[in-house]
Structures are given as C-alpha cells and as structure tokens.
Amino acid sequence: MTSVAETPARAADLTVVHVPVSDPRVRPLLRELGHEYSTRYGTDAHAEITRYPDEEFTPPHGGLLLLLLENGSPVAGGAFRRYDAATAELKRIWTHSAHRRRGLARRVLAELEHEAGARGYRRIHLTTGPRQPEARGLYLATGYTPLFDIEADPETVGSHPFEKDLVLTTLPGKATEQ
C-alpha cells in the first residue's frame, strides 16, 4: 500500500496530495493532457505521456506526482524527475480545463520547486512546446530563464527549454512533514 501525504493548501477545500502515477486520481488529468497535446500538435500524445517509466517519478531521486484536489477532485498537478545530480526536471504540469485562470499552475510550480529543493536539487529544468503559449507565459512570469530565443517564431524554435535556480523557502501554509 502506498502512503499518501496530504497537507492543507491555501483554502480549506484545496488540498495538496503526493501520489504515485498509478493513483486513479491521476488518470483524468493525464487523459485531458493527452487530448490537449493531440489537439495542439496533431499527433497521438500517448507516446509522449508514457515516455518515462513511472519509477522516474518516485523518491528518492524522482518526484512524486503532486495533485491539487478541490473538494476531493483533482484540478491540477505535476511531477518531477531527476535530470542530473543537482537538477530536477518538471513534467506534466497541468490544470484541468474547467479550473484554469485561478493560479493553480503557479501553485503547482511552487509546490514542485519546494519538494525538489527538499530532496536536494538546486536547479529546475523544464521544456514546453511551441504551441503552449500559456505555459511559456507562466514560466517567464515565475522566474524561469528561457534557454532559447524568445523573439524567434515559436514554431522555428521547437522545444522551449527553461531553467531556474532554486531558492529554498517555506511555502505559506506548508506543514512540515515528519
């Protein structure tokens, strides 16, 4: 049996949950993510979503899938995996389409950065695609450094890599895990 850590989030009905990829609450978000990737890029997204084995997203090096639950239902999530000894790579950051424009992705980023820092990582790496301007805007707004020419046509750049040095901080309302 896998243990699930839950801590209260900023609102009484918003909970942060750390779960394995196999948790059934993950499926709806990954299904919607796959649909959106397929719609935006015109390909079957299954290969991209399943490219990394689940074990890469488990402790001690990889990083647990984090879900934000609202009234018990998943509304946003993300994960990280080991990129190198000092760097975590963020993957699958997602907000359910019915819950966008509420700052949930920003909250997921902050939680993932905190968890990666707690596991000893000092830098974050991530990539997004050229047809995801919302993600690009989020990463720029939250202090990520683009490793590509942001003035270039996004389609000519291809994958959009970003990085960020971690500053260890305590999240507001974050309970210390024992």
Rank of each mutant, 00 (worst) to 15 (best):
H35Q: 15
D149V: 04
G117D: 10
L104P: 05
H18R: 14
H125I: 04
Q132H: 12
Y121D: 08
T50E: 15
E115D: 14
A88L: 03
T128D: 00
A135D: 09
R136W: 08
T142M: 01
L90P: 08
T176F: 05
S3A: 12
L67P: 01
T15R: 04
A11Y: 09
D13Q: 09
G117K: 00
L66N: 03
E163Y: 06
P20L: 05
A79M: 01
H125T: 01
Y83V: 00
A105V: 09
V167H: 11
Y37G: 02
A175W: 08
V19A: 03
R27Q: 08
Y121A: 04
G137H: 08
D84S: 13
G63W: 11
E56D: 15
T87P: 14
L109N: 05
L65E: 02
A76K: 04
M1R: 13
A86H: 13
A11G: 03
G34N: 10
H35Y: 09
V167S: 14
V17P: 00
D149T: 01
R81C: 08
E113V: 06
E115A: 15
L168I: 02
R100T: 06
P133T: 09
A118H: 02
G117L: 02
A11R: 14
L166E: 08
K174M: 05
R51I: 13
R107I: 10
E115W: 03
I49G: 11
A135M: 04
L64T: 07
S73G: 01
G137L: 12
S97F: 05
S38M: 12
T142Y: 01
F162G: 02
P53G: 15
L166I: 15
E134D: 13
E89D: 12
L126Q: 09
E177Q: 07
P24R: 06
R106L: 05
T39R: 15
R136M: 11
T156N: 09
D149I: 08
Y37E: 01
Y144R: 10
G42Q: 11
G143L: 07
Y52G: 03
L138Q: 09
P53S: 10
R122C: 12
G158V: 13
